[in-house]
Amino acid sequence: MENLKVLLVDDSGAMQKMIKMALSKIGIEGVATALNGVEGMENLKESIPDLILCDWNMPEMNGYQFVTAVRADSNFKKIPILMLTTVNTKDEVIQIMKAGANDFLNKPFTPDALKDKIIKVTKG
């Protein structure tokens, strides 16, 4: 788990820092960041991560569009995607799953909760 390469897509700098801190607490240091889906796609073209953490609500290209675009590319089909967002309704859950994400985690979360979810989606 320590060697996981993670791509973190979130439009908030503060949020990025906090998630990185949480990741670092559970031993993950290899984190690439992108501010929106467009940047995220650029990033994917350079290197394929072991896991994508992604916000739902972003400018330019939002989480739905990003995940859909990732899944539309056969190179990225297998990358586990965990949405980090605030999900309140069944519809939102379905929407996230429809886009092609593996699971979601409600913000705010504890490092432990993040760890559990990461183990779950990466099957490791």
């Binding site: 989480g63 739905y64 569009q65 859909t68 309140n88 309704t89 929407q95 429809k98 886009a99 092609g100």
Partner: peptide, 18 residues
């Protein structure tokens, strides 16, 4: 999926829609 995306110009609006 594409159809989906085209049909709803703002998918997250739909996501929150009751």
């Amino acid at each position: 999926k594409q159809d989906d995306a085209e049909a709803s110009s703002s998918p997250d609006a739909e996501a929150v829609a009751p």
